[in-house]
């Protein structure tokens, strides 16, 4: 990893101790931001926010709300960071946020531990096609 003094952006897909960014830099300041635009536009209910809040409280992270990009950049400045470290998101909304953060400062994304590592990308389209290829590999670990 090239970043020397990163802050960690924890997002909604990685609110656990297996977050690869937290594992990589357990002592770096870390932040979770409640994305107020998403919450309003998708009409996210309070129980979903409560679940996220309780999960975030288990991690050594600062909690804020607002525009995620602005909050992450401000947090990096607050800690004199040389960049932002996070886990690779799947959600395109989080991906867009990552791209915006990267336009302001260096960003590194770490891939979480995979469920199954395939020798080549599996065929998708229907579950049965994917599972025909993935299942034998998954069971190799048993």
């Amino acid at each position: 990893m090239s970043l020397q003094r990163p802050v960690i952006w924890v997002h909604e897909e990685a609110l656990g101790s297996s977050n690869p960014a937290l594992l990589e830099r357990p002592n770096s300041p870390a932040l979770f931001v409640f994305d107020t635009r998403w919450i309003q536009e998708a009409r996210i209910s309070r129980k979903r926010l409560g679940f996220l809040y309780e999960s975030a409280l288990d991690l050594p992270i600062t909690l804020r709300k607002g525009d995620v990009v602005k909050e992450v950049i401000a947090f990096a400045e607050r800690h004199n960071a040389d960049g932002v470290l996070s886990s690779l998101p799947v959600d395109p909304r989080l991906e867009r946020i990552a791209v915006s953060i990267e336009s302001h400062c260096p960003l590194e994304l770490l891939e979480p531990e995979p469920f199954v590592t395939m020798p080549r990308p599996p065929r998708l389209g229907r579950f049965s096609r994917y599972w025909r290829e993935a299942e034998p590999v998954v069971w190799e670990g048993f």
């Binding site: 656990g16 309070r46 979903r48 309780e54 288990d58």
Partner: peptide
């Protein structure tokens, strides 16, 4: 954000 908390808790 409408509603109340769920009986299901978040966290490790």
């Amino acid at each position: 954000a409408g509603g109340r908390l769920s009986s299901l808790r978040g966290g490790r």
